[in-house]
Design a protein around this nucleic acid. Structure first.
Lengths: 172, 172, 172, 172
DNA sequence: TATGAATGAGGGTTCATTCAT
DNA sequence: TATGAATGAACCCTCATTCAT
C-alpha cells in the first residue's frame, strides 16, 4: 500500500512491489490473479481490519456528545491520519473511476459507515439539547471534510506548500 | 482536461485524447512535444486564464467582512465548483508526485494565492471586531477545505455514494 | 547531399532537408516522389555531372604514363577528395544494400569507369615498358583503394583519430 | 552483427533481430537496456575478445621484417577479412557519427593499436636496412588501407560489381 | 508553385502476465 | 512454494507522405 499510495496505481510496477517485498514478480501471481485484484485486496484487507477496531471504540462512551465528538475526531486522526492508512483516501479518490466495484465497496463500507457514526452522535446531541438543531448529515460532512482533506493534501500537494500551518484540527 | 480528470494521467491514452478531439495522435505532437507537456499545458492554460479574472473581483467590496466572506465562498463555487475548473483539484492531488514542477507552480500560484485572499478578509474582520480572534490561517484553511474537498469528492467517489446530500455550503 | 553524407540516409529527415533548403516538406514532393527517389537523384545528378568533366581531362595527356598516373591521382583528389563529392563514397558504401538499383548504377557508372581509366593507363605503361608486367586490374585497385579509403575514413572515423597523419598520397 | 552490418543501424529493426535470434522483441530488453546499448555491445564484445588474441600472435617472429610484414598481412586477413569480424569496418564507418563514444573507443583500441604494430615492424625494417627510409606511419596506413577497404567494399558495393577480381593482396 | 496542417503506419520501449523449472 | 526467463500487447512518439488551400 505504501507503494500504491506513493506513486498511484499505474505508476506502481509489479517489479517494484516484488522487490519491496523481497520476492519476485512471479510469486505475486501465486497469491493474486492480477494487479487489479492485488490492488483491491490491498485496500480491502487494510480497511476491513481497521473498521472492526473502529466500531468497538465508538460505542463505549460516557459523558457529553460534545466530548465524544471531540474524542472521535482525535481518534480518527490517530487511527487514519497518522498511520499508513493515511494514503488510502488519496489513493481512492485518484483511482475511483478506474475501479468502480472497489469504489462502491469503499464508499459503502468506509465512508458511509464512518459518517453514520458521526451523524448518530450529532443527532443524539441535538436531541439532548447539547447542539442546536441542524441537519446532522451536513454537519457530519462538514466535520469530516477537513479531516479527510488534510490527509489527501498531506499526501499530494502539501510537500510543495511552503506555508506549513496544517493540522488545523488539533486545536479543536 | 475531462479525460485526465476522469481517468488519471497514465490511464488517459493519447489515442483517447485524439479521438475525443476528432483528430489523430500524430496531430497532438504538432502542438505539444510530449504527453507530459500536454498535461502541463492543460492545467496551466486554464489556471492562468482564470486567475486573472479572480483577482479583479476580489477587491471591490463594500459592507461587512462577514458578507464578503460569504460572497467569496459563493463566488469560489460559481467560479470553480460549477465550471470546468472543477476537475483540477482532483487532477492535481492525484498526479502531484508525478509532476513536481507543476505541483510547485500550482501551489504557489493557485492554492496560496487563494488562501491569502481569505486570510486577509478574516484578519480585517478580526481587526474591526466582526470576528473573534483566531489564527486567520487556520480559519482560511477550514473554510476552504470543505469547498475543495467537495469538488474532489464530486469528481471521484461521489458517483458511488448513494447518500446524495452534498453541496453542504449552499446553506451557508 | 551534405545532409545525407553527414548523418546517413535514415538519420536525415525530410524536415531537415526542407529547412536546409529554406522550403517546406511539402515542396519536396513537387519535385521528387519519395525520399528514396530524392536520394537517388541527389547521388545521380552530382555523379553524372562530374563524370563528364572527368572523362575530358583524362584523355589529353602527353608525356609518360607514370606522369599521367601521378597527375590523375592528384586530379582524383582535387575533384573528389576535396569537394563535396567526398561524402559520396561513404554514403554509398553505407547504404548500398538498402538501394540495390542505385548501387548497381553507381558501380557501373562510377567505380568501374574510373577504374577502367586507370587500367588503361597502366596497361599502356606496361606495353611501352615503363611499368613492369603486373595484372593491371589489381594495380588499379591498389592505387584507388587508398584514395577512396582516405575519403571514407575522413568522413567517418577520422574525427575520432588523434594521430592526424592522413593525406598519405600527397607525397606520391 | 550480420544484420547491423547488412542494413545499417536504423534500418535494422529489433523485430528482425529478435526473429533472427529466435526470440521476441521484449526479451532483448532483459539483456540490453536499449537498441543503442545493444549495438555497442555487439561491437565491443567481438572486438575485445579478438584483440586479446591478436596481441599474442604479433610478437613471436623470427626472420626478416619483410617476412613478418607479409605474414601479418595474411594474418590480418585470416583473422578479420574472412571471419565474422569482416562486417565491423563497414559498420563502424557507416555509423561513426551516430555513435561518438563508440567511435572513439574503436579508433583508440582497434585502429590505432593495429597500426602501431605495423609501424613498429616498418621502423625496425628501416633501422636494419631492409626497407628504404620512409615515414613509417604513412607506409602503415598505405598497407592497411587496401585491406580495410577490401573488407568494406566486400560488405557493401562489391555485390553489385561485375568485375570480380578482388582479393588483391593475396598475391603480395 | 508553395504551404503547413494532418495523417497513420511503424518504430523502440514497457510491463503485466505466463510457464517451465 | 518460488523463480526468472520469456512473452506480446499496448503504449508513446517519429516521420514520410498527403492534400486542401
Amino acid at each position: 500500500m505504501d507503494l500504491f499510495a506513493g506513486h498511484g496505481y499505474s505508476s506502481t510496477k509489479l517489479d517494484d512491489i516484488a522487490t519491496h517485498e523481497g520476492i519476485t514478480k512471479g510469486t505475486i501471481y501465486l497469491y493474486f490473479e492480477s494487479k487489479e485484484k492485488l490492488f483491491q485486496a490491498v485496500i480491502q484487507r487494510i480497511i476491513v481490519k481497521e473498521i472492526e477496531k473502529g466500531k468497538k471504540l465508538a460505542v463505549e462512551h460516557e459523558g457529553s456528545q460534545r466530548d465524544l465528538l471531540r474524542k472521535l475526531i482525535h481518534y480518527w486522526w490517530s487511527m487514519v491520519g497518522e498511520t499508513r492508512l493515511a494514503g488510502i483516501p488519496k489513493l481512492m479518490t485518484s483511482e475511483a473511476s478506474n475501479f468502480p466495484e472497489l469504489s462502491s465497496f469503499f464508499v459503502d463500507n468506509v465512508t458511509c459507515r464512518a459518517r453514520a457514526i458521526f451523524v448518530e452522535i450529532i443527532e443524539e446531541g441535538i436531541t439532548n439539547g447539547e447542539f442546536r438543531k441542524l441537519d446532522a448529515n451536513y454537519v457530519a460532512r462538514l466535520v469530516l471534510a477537513p479531516l479527510v482533506f488534510a490527509v489527501i493534501w498531506e499526501k499530494s500537494l502539501s510537500p510543495y506548500d511552503k506555508e506549513k500551518n496544517h493540522m488545523i484540527f488539533i486545536s479543536i
